[in-house]
C-alpha cells in the first residue's frame, strides 16, 4: 500500500490581510504561512494508516517558497518519502491556485504511483475548485470529500463522509482513489523542535514537471476587503468594563 499526501501552505488567517495594489493578490511580504490545517489532518491520517497497515507514505508539495521546510516537517511527522515539484511560475505572480497546480500534481502522482491520494478537503484560497475532486477527475479515480475516517481492507477503502447536521455515510471505494480529508482519526501529532532541527540538512528531492499550470480565472478576479459597515456594534474597554456591558445587554434581553 502506497499513500501520497498532498500538502499546501496557506496564509495564517489570524494575521491581518492586506491587498497588493490592484487587488490581484494578498500582500505576502509580512504575512505568515502555515501548513493548510486540512492538509495537516491529511498528513496525520496518512501516518496513522502507515502505522496501522504498514503503508508507505510519500508527501508531495508544489510550493515556490517554503516547500522544503514543509516537507521536512512531514518527514518529522513520519512520512517515508517526500517530493517537491519545482514551481516555475513567474516570481511576481500570485502563487498558483489548486486548479492551476493540478496538472503538475497529477504528473507527480503518476510518477509516485500511489494506491491512495489524501489531501485536505479545501484550502482557504482554492477559489477555482478544490484539489481532491480535480485530481480524481484528471486521474479518472473515484473520490470522496469531507472524509473523517479512513479504513483499508486490501484494495478496498472505506471512508466516513460527513454531511450537514451531523449525518454521515460509510462509503466503500475501489483503489486507487482520492480523498479530501476533513478530520483525521486523531489530532495532528506534536513534533519536537529538535527532530525538525535534525532534518535541517536533509535533501528534499525535486522533480521538474513537464506539465503546464492549468488555466483558472485568477486573471479575471479582483480581491477586496469586505465592507465592514453595518457589522457588529463594537464594545471597547478593559475586560471588566466589557464584561459589565455584555452583562447589561444580556439583562436587557432577559437572558440572565
Amino acid at each position: 500500500m502506497h499513500i501520497a499526501v498532498i500538502l499546501r501552505l496557506n496564509p495564517v488567517l489570524t494575521d491581518e490581510l492586506e491587498l497588493t495594489e490592484g487587488g490581484k493578490d494578498i500582500d505576502r511580504e509580512w504575512i505568515g504561512f502555515e501548513l493548510n490545517p486540512m492538509d495537516d489532518q491529511a498528513l496525520e491520517q496518512s501516518v496513522l494508516l502507515k502505522e496501522a497497515h504498514g503503508a508507505k507514505v510519500t508527501a508531495i508539495a508544489a510550493e515556490a517558497e517554503g516547500g522544503e521546510r514543509l516537507l521536512r516537517t512531514a518527514l518529522a511527522r513520519g512520512v517515508d518519502d517526500v517530493l517537491l515539484i519545482s514551481n516555475k511560475k513567474d516570481d511576481d505572480a500570485p502563487p498558483p491556485s489548486s486548479r492551476a497546480r493540478t496538472p503538475l500534481l497529477v504528473e507527480a502522482i503518476k510518477q509516485v504511483k500511489p494506491d491512495l491520494v489524501i489531501t485536505g478537503i479545501l484550502s482557504t484560497d482554492d477559489l477555482y475548485g478544490e484539489l481532491a475532486p480535480q485530481l480524481a477527475a484528471c486521474l479518472n479515480w473515484p473520490q470522496a470529500s469531507a472524509v473523517s475516517d479512513v479504513r483499508l481492507d486490501g484494495m478496498v477503502l472505506t471512508v466516513r463522509q460527513e454531511y450537514a447536521g451531523g449525518m454521515a455515510a460509510l462509503i466503500e471505494m475501489d483503489l486507487p482513489a482520492v480523498i479530501g480529508l476533513q478530520t483525521a482519526a486523531s489530532p495532528p501529532r506534536y513534533v519536537a523542535g529538535s527532530k525538525l532541527r535534525d532534518l535541517l540538512n536533509t535533501k528534499v528531492p525535486e522533480m521538474e514537471a513537464s506539465a503546464e499550470f492549468a488555466e483558472d480565472l485568477s486573471e479575471a478576479t479582483t480581491l477586496n476587503l469586505p465592507d465592514t459597515s453595518g457589522g457588529a456594534e463594537m464594545i471597547e474597554g478593559d475586560a471588566k468594563s466589557v464584561a459589565a456591558r455584555i452583562h447589561e445587554i444580556l439583562m436587557e434581553r432577559g437572558l440572565v
Partner: peptide, 19 residues
Amino acid sequence: TAGVDLAAGLAVRSERPML
C-alpha cells in the same frame, strides 16, 4: 459536501471554468 465533490470534478471533466 456534495457540492465540493461534484463542482470541481465536473468542471475538469466538462472543461468548464469553476468558481
